[in-house]
Structures are given as C-alpha cells and as structure tokens.
Measured scan of single mutants.
Amino acid sequence: MAAGGDHGSPDSYRSPLASRYASPEMCFVFSDRYKFRTWRQLWLWLAEAEQTLGLPITDEQIQEMKSNLENIDFKMAAEEEKRLRHDVMAHVHTFGHCCPKAAGIIHLGATSCYVGDNTDLIILRNALDLLLPKLARVISRLADFAKERASLPTLGFTHFQPAQLTTVGKRCCLWIQDLCMDLQNLKRVRDDLRFRGVKGTTGTQASFLQLFEGDDHKVEQLDKMVTEKAGFKRAFIITGQTYTRKVDIEVLSVLASLGASVHKICTDIRLLANLKEMEEPFEKQQIGSSAMPYKRNPMRSERCCSLARHLMTLVMDPLQTASVQWFERTLDDSANRRICLAEAFLTADTILNTLQNISEGLVVYPKVIERRIRQELPFMATENIIMAMVKAGGSRQDCHEKIRVLSQQAASVVKQEGGDNDLIERIQVDAYFSPIHSQLDHLLDPSSFTGRASQQVQRFLEEEVYPLLKPYESVMKVKAELCL
C-alpha cells in the first residue's frame, strides 16, 4: 500500500493539533497551500530580480507567473513527485505547466533550498508574528487579574506546605514575570531571523556568478533584492546548502521555554482548584465526569500541561538535527523538520489560546482563602504575639514557653481530632496574655502579614508589564474561544 493518505478522510490519521486544537490561522501558515504558494512567490521574486539585473526574462513571463501564483494543481504535483521522487522539481514542473512561456526560467540558477529553506524562514517569521500578540493578550488578562487582587491576602506555599502570606495578585505576578520573559525572547528570536537568500547549491553562489558572467556586484544585488522582497532586513552571508540548523534550535528553545512557563502556571491553577481557592472557567453544560456528576475538573489547565510537556520535548529534535548536518548538509534534517517545526508552533498556539481562555474567566473564592488563612495564621502570628507581650512588660522566655504549650495543644486538636485551630481562643482565655487581649485582632490582621506584596504588584505592572504590552494595544480586544 502506498504511503500517505487522504487526510480529510475519517479513515486516515490526522494530527489532533490540526484537527482538534490549533487555530485556523496557525494551521494555514503550515498548510501545503501556504507552503507551495510561497515557493511560487519566491520563484517570481527571483525572476523579477534577475530581470532587473539584466537576464533575458520578459515582462510577459513575469506576468504569467504572477497570474498563476494561486493556480496550484495539487493532484498534478503529487503525481509528479511520485514520478520524480523530488518535491521541488515536482512543483517546478507543475508551475511550468500553467506558465508555459515562463517554464524555462522558473528556478533559474537556484537549488531546492532556495524555495525550501527560504519558505521555512518566512513561515517561522509569520508563525512567530501570530504567537506574539496571543502571548501579549494572556499577559494582559493576567495583569488585569493581578491588579484587581493585588491586596487580597492568601496563604503562600513553599514545598506545598503553608508559608508566609502573600497576595493573590502577587502570586499571579510570578506567572506574568515568566511570560514577559517569554514574550521578550519570542520577539528577540523573531527579529534575529535572517533570510537564507540566493546562495546556490553549497552556499557559494557559483551558479549565479556564472549567470551574471562573473559580476560579483550583481550577485550581491540579486541576494539583497530577493531578501528585501521577502520582507527581511538581512540575509546570511555564510550558508551551506541550507541555512544553519542552529536557527531551528533557537526558535524551538524559546517555544519550549514558553511551554515550561505555561505548565507551571496551569499546575498552580490545578492545585488551587483542589484547594477550592480558584477555578478555571466551567461552562453551564460542561460535564466533569461521566460517573461523578459533582466533579469540576480543571480540564483546560490539564490540557495545557499535557501539550506543554510535548512542546518542551520537541527542542531535542533540532538539537540532534543540527549535530548531524555533515559538511554542507545531509538530508537527516528533512523529514524531522517537516514534523517538529509545525508541531512546535501548533502546540504553542494551542496552549496560548487555551491559557487566554482560562485567564479571561478565572474565578476566585475569597471566603475559602480566608478560612485557610484562619487555619494557619495563628501559628504564624506567634512571633508577633511574643513581641507584643514583651512590649507590655512580659518575659520573652516565659511567653515563648506559654505559646509553645498552647500551640501544641491547638495542633493536637487540628491533627488528632480534625478540629479547627483554636490557638487564639486559648490565648484569649489565658490570664497571662490579658495585657494584649485587646491587640489580638490587630495582630491577626492578614494584611499585616503580606509585606509589600501589593506595592510590588503595582510597581511591576507599571514599570515592566504595561510598557512591554504597549506595541500590542491594537490587538488586545480579541477574545479566545474554545470549541473543545
């Protein structure tokens, strides 16, 4: 049975990233139509530049190519590739079939990587351009969430054990800070992308030097003109047959890092959902379990974690691919890159769409948070109580021993009897502590235990987050809708 299948058929496997999760716009960027249309555009740009620099290419040939950029006979191309065992030459023939007058000058002087690699770089750039505003929107939604809850005390956790208090907004800023680093890295790697350009079979530009009869300047002009037509500021000066596969490492490393950030955020949300302090959106008709109707599973956060793990592992592909590119190139890269580049971007696209949807509907339960604080705060307040007693004339050592005994009794009630923490009640009825009984409410005010959390939130948002989001103001209103 021949390899390949009808990918629109229910009898043929289709990647869930495309069929179930990723956005239509990201799927289109990695589609065959987008790819092969870009090949034709690159052939047109090459012909236009070659004509401008004096090669015998007519206006009629150029116009014929322009008129057929979208006229792609995919069936013919597939048949040609089956016959020739070469995808680029299959599309040269297919393009030439609908451009008979231009057929002889299509791909003039070029090698397969002229269309293959340059198209990949265009796709990487455009895919990054799709991700950047999506990530900015996630940051914006979380920034709104953090600002609104900047002063809401909550129990902090280290080692997932109760620690000092923080605020809900401050905790959210930990998430935002990681995503801001990801946004900066995505922008950097996007701006650092260079075009492969017009380089020939081993990167020496020998074929173009021959076409222009040894004119170095025209060869350099050709490279520059096509690079500018493709919208790049610069091209690699040095290439082998391909652009260095280190570029793929750079791009997928940034995406993998984004995956790590999203995994951490969504894990926190899942843990908070278990504590009943916070939940992701839950639709009115949504079913959490087929057997347990009360369940409210954090399905979206779980999906993000599941896909983020996949995204983090994909960076190993370009690392290994770059390491086995012998001399000017081997074909070890080809099949692998067809999979890992598309999957990385479709996965990143999915987790950003999902995280935006989550961040637009996060639900906080202040009463649950308050109750958990009441359970733990008495123990945390013991040092403040000791200091207040010393100020009232008591002995630190005597007070410490009193607190120690009462704390152990209260802990026994919590752990052995399943009761509430009654340390404060014990202190309130103990005559030894009568000098500070009137101060206990103040000493137990949760806001006095959150330090500068709310001020940190305000400063972080104003100095770091809002300036970073400013270039994306025009796209901030787009909502994230999930079908599944």
Results as ranks from 00 to 15, higher is better:
S289I: 02
P471H: 15
Q356Y: 13
A235Y: 14
G361F: 08
E64K: 09
F28V: 07
E370A: 09
M387A: 15
T52I: 10
T313S: 13
S207C: 08
L44C: 13
S9E: 12
H263K: 03
D215R: 13
G5S: 12
E64W: 08
G169H: 02
R296W: 07
Q285H: 11
T158L: 03
N297W: 04
T94C: 12
Q285S: 13
R300S: 07
E79M: 11
I105W: 03
A206L: 09
E25P: 07
L69W: 12
C172P: 05
L272T: 06
C27A: 15
L258D: 01
T119Y: 11
A78K: 10
K479C: 13
K470F: 13
L193R: 03
A110T: 10
D268T: 09
A273D: 10
L255E: 01
Q408R: 13
K367L: 04
R426G: 07
N353Q: 09
A230G: 06
H437P: 01
S112V: 00
L183I: 13
A322D: 06
T158G: 00
A127K: 01
D11H: 15
L352Y: 08
G231S: 10
Q63K: 11
H442Q: 12
I424K: 15
L311M: 14
E228V: 09
D332F: 04
R372Q: 05
A163I: 01
G259Q: 00
P446D: 02
G104V: 12
S334F: 01
D420I: 05
A453H: 05
R371G: 04
Q455W: 07
R234Q: 11
A47Y: 00
D333I: 00
V368F: 03
D332Y: 00
G419I: 07
D192Y: 10
E277H: 05
F95I: 07
E328C: 06
L461W: 07
T242Q: 06
C305Q: 04
P162D: 01
I339D: 03
T330N: 05
A47P: 04
C305H: 06
T267L: 08
L406G: 06
S31D: 10
L108I: 12
E328L: 02
Q409N: 11
S301H: 06
V226A: 04
T239V: 08
E383I: 04
L130P: 00
D248L: 04
L352G: 06
G361R: 15
D87T: 00
H7V: 12
A291I: 03
L108A: 15
A206C: 12
A273W: 04
E463G: 12
S151L: 10
Q184E: 14
I237N: 09
H217M: 12
P56I: 07
L222V: 13
C340D: 05
A342W: 10
K229T: 06
P366K: 08
Q320G: 11
N384T: 10
Y472K: 07
G231F: 06
L124S: 12
T111C: 01
I403T: 08
F74T: 15
N185W: 09
E328V: 02
R452W: 06
K479S: 14
G240S: 08
T350N: 15
V198W: 01
S289Q: 00
C266H: 11
V115G: 02
R194N: 07
P435F: 06
K402T: 05
A206W: 01
D87R: 00
Q164T: 06
N185I: 06
Q409L: 10
G231L: 07
P133S: 15
K170P: 02
R141D: 06
T166A: 06
T267W: 01
T321D: 01
R300F: 08
Q286V: 01
T119M: 05
L46K: 01
S395T: 06
L272A: 11
M181P: 07
N421I: 08
C304Y: 01
R404S: 10
G197S: 12
S31I: 00
Q210Y: 01
S395A: 09
P378E: 04
P56L: 13
T330S: 10
S474D: 14
I176K: 02
A273K: 00
D59Y: 11
G8Q: 15
D441G: 11
G394V: 08
G5W: 12
W39Y: 15
W45M: 09
A256S: 14
H310Y: 08
G4F: 15
P56H: 13
L124R: 03
A348H: 04
A273E: 11
K170L: 07
Q164P: 03
T350S: 15
S207D: 01
S257F: 07
S474E: 15
R337K: 12
S151K: 14
A453S: 14
P378M: 03
C483H: 11
Y243N: 09
V115A: 09
C266L: 13
G5Q: 06
G240A: 11
A49T: 06
T330R: 03
V368C: 05
D349K: 04
G231W: 05
S359A: 08
T38A: 08
S407W: 00
D117M: 01
K391S: 13
I369M: 11
V363Q: 06
V457E: 04
L362E: 07
S289W: 00
V219Q: 06
M225E: 12
A163G: 15
Q356F: 02
Q184C: 10
N336T: 15
K75Y: 12
S334Y: 03
R188C: 06
D215I: 07
P318Q: 04
D248W: 03
E48A: 06
F449A: 04
L155W: 02
R85F: 09
H93S: 15
H107V: 00
T158K: 03
V478E: 15
R374K: 13
L406M: 15
I57F: 07
R374S: 10
S23I: 07
L461E: 01
Q177T: 14
V475D: 11
S12E: 15
C180G: 12
I351S: 06
E302D: 02
Y365K: 05
L252P: 03
W45A: 12
L132H: 14
P467N: 09
R20F: 00
W326L: 13
S447L: 15
T354L: 15
G200D: 00
M380W: 01
D178K: 05
K367D: 04
N185D: 06
K199D: 01
V363D: 06
Y13L: 14
S140I: 15
F379N: 03
